[in-house]
Amino acid sequence: MSQTTFHTALLAPNQPTPPGLVDPQGRAAGKRFDVYRNNVVVSLTDALAQAFPVIAKLTGPRFFTALAGAFLRAHPPRDPRLATWGAAFPAFLTSFEPAQKLPYLPDTARLEQALRESYHAADSTPIPASVLAALPPEQLATTRLTLAPSLRMIASPWPIHGIWAFNMSNGPQPGASGEEVLITRPEFAPQMQILPTGSAAVLAALHHTPLGEATPEGFDLTPLLSALLSGGAIIALDTAP
């Protein structure tokens, strides 16, 4: 029997067991084949729940099992490193019809995915805060930052950090307004900080433009810069004009 036949039946729970798969008496391997069906679906569902614990908690076991079952069939892992599986999950939540009643799920999943990526990102060594502090203001404006590979930022119209903290660390009831969440990884544990509106756009620009150009008129760069410094997220400065 080809692996294509085995594979097709594996992911189709209502199909009969393929012929040629038997028990010790030569009878069709019904429940025995179901062990493999179950292993595939349960192990991938568990992996997704571990990767997105807030989504699992918000949706509850029954809904999450149905959601994961649909996701793993539409977007099976393409890589045996399960830590890389799930990048398509936030967008899938946007299109998964039964999830439409919880419109904050996709951005919450984006936050969880960003935390996973940060956790596994390459190590880097931050510059000391004193290096930046020592720059005269006119030189600061032309300075380009090199940022840590573990740095992520997610901006949302939903209170995604509040939702995360309420579900994961007994935080207070989430507020009503949107949040921009910076993720840094000072050593090995990703940390989240909420920053003022507009910070995500400035940070995106900082990846390729000097500080002065990246900062809009009237925007106070201090909270973002101090969050980056305290999170060890600035790893080099280029002060050449």
């Binding site: 594979h7 493999y36 595939v40 099976p76 393409r78 890589d79 045996p80 399960l82």
Partner: peptide, 17 residues
Amino acid sequence: AWSTHEGAFLNDLLPLP
């Protein structure tokens, strides 16, 4: 065992004849 089919990883150790 086998665990990947047409690029999709199934996360289980599947049997062989």
